[in-house]
Amino acid sequence: MALEESHVRRAAHLARLAVSDDQASGFVDDLSRILDMVDQLQSLDTEGVTPLAHPLDATQRLRADEVTETNQRDTFQRCAPAVENGLYLVPRVVE
């Protein structure tokens, strides 16, 4: 499956990653080589094989619906780039 620059642009948009025109062509080259290597998978017959998501086939454990964590907003906001009154600051979204 050949990779086009439009695929890289779409992935960059979905991943919220700024990519310049120069970088985009470099990524097309690199990613194409990686996907060529990955395409070896297509030669293998996997008809009827159940996909494996967890190496021990474990499923998500449930716990009781109880509050176990304490509020540590101040601690966690100490590593934020911009906060005010306990809120994270970002550029204005709604005019």
Partner: peptide, 21 residues
């Protein structure tokens, strides 16, 4: 970028499901 691409619409089954199999 590779991960976003292979998970994206139109590619998911060919890549991700296949790799998990």
């Amino acid at each position: 970028l590779i991960g976003t691409h292979t998970l994206s619409e139109g590619f998911f089954d060919a890549y991700y499901t296949k790799a998990q199999q």
